[in-house]
Design a protein around this nucleic acid. Structure first.
Ligand SMILES: [Mn+2]
Ligand SMILES: [Mn+2]
Ligand SMILES: [Zn+2]
Ligand SMILES: [Zn+2]
Lengths: 141, 141
DNA sequence: TTGCATTTTATAATTATTTTAATTTATTTT
DNA sequence: AAAATAAATTAAAATAATTATAAAATGCAA
């Protein structure tokens, strides 16, 4: 995705398309690593050395509010971010802590069907996220 | 669950059964609110005023390590704990932030079956946790 | 019951994040 | 276009959650 497309995404959400916002969202779109604010800051600093870490936090808050970005739940103490807001699930590696994407429409349908049939008293479900904990297989294990 | 039973749980895990550990684990077992360390500290302080917040953190770390307690992922910045370690899922209320339990064996079987059939290249899944985001229905809404 | 490793405690330190207030940048008004 | 206004960014300070430290207390095996 090029700068102009990222700029449009930001504008269409009703946000001022500042250089900082463009460059931060672009970096997040180019990562599939679910980075922290600080990791993104380090990514972007090379290209844009005047950037402040506060701006990364502020920008991510804005982008989350406008649903251009999602927060990713972690077991560690720091927030991670994901620019891929379409429905998908996550693999959590218990050894490395790595968080990877898991896309599967069949699974999404199964979950939708299940909760269409089994309603939860007193609760209206809106979104299902499956956290799959396990281990990445070492090369040659 | 009485003190003696909680004490046994701790001893059987190979931990010294100190008063603090007993009273903290007991409080967590009596809560279905997935409390933070500080919330637990406030719970327990009445009954045991000499308790230190560090001890709550230390104890929870121990209990997690011995798998008597699980950490609960949250979107906010603080860790929550759950003394119910049997397989279950969580309802996250987008309005109140409340986290409730969701038990359903049929769902567990569906998930087990699905991943028995659909293996994930390079990854060995061990545990499935479904996060169900939505809203609790107000009384008379 | 003693000895000793373990645990607890109060305090200090650290880390992640948020707030503040001045400055810069962008947008609107004249 | 220039001035006025509003919004965003910045560096620094503040806060909140958690972890580390080191002395004192406790639990438990011998
Ligand atoms: Mn990178
Ligand atoms: Mn934190
Ligand atoms: Zn993702
Ligand atoms: Zn639970």
């Amino acid at each position: 995705m090029n700068n102009a497309e990222v700029k449009d995404k930001i504008s269409n959400a009703g946000l001022k398309a500042t250089t900082q916002r463009i460059v931060i969202l672009k970096a997040l779109l180019e990562s599939r690593e679910h980075p922290t604010a600080e990791e993104l800051y380090n990514e972007v600093k090379d290209e844009y050395p005047a950037l402040s870490l506060s701006t990364v936090y502020n920008t991510l808050d804005c982008l989350v509010e406008k649903a251009l970005v999602k927060q990713v739940q972690t077991e560690g103490g720091n927030m991670r971010y994901d620019a891929f807001v379409d429905i998908h699930h996550h693999l959590y590696c218990s050894e490395s802590g790595k968080i990877s994407d898991y896309y599967n429409d069949e699974l999404n349908n199964i979950l939708e069907d299940f909760f269409a049939k089994h309603n939860i008293p007193g609760f209206i479900p809106e979104e299902f996220k499956l956290n799959i904990k396990g281990k990445f297989i070492e090369n040659g294990e």
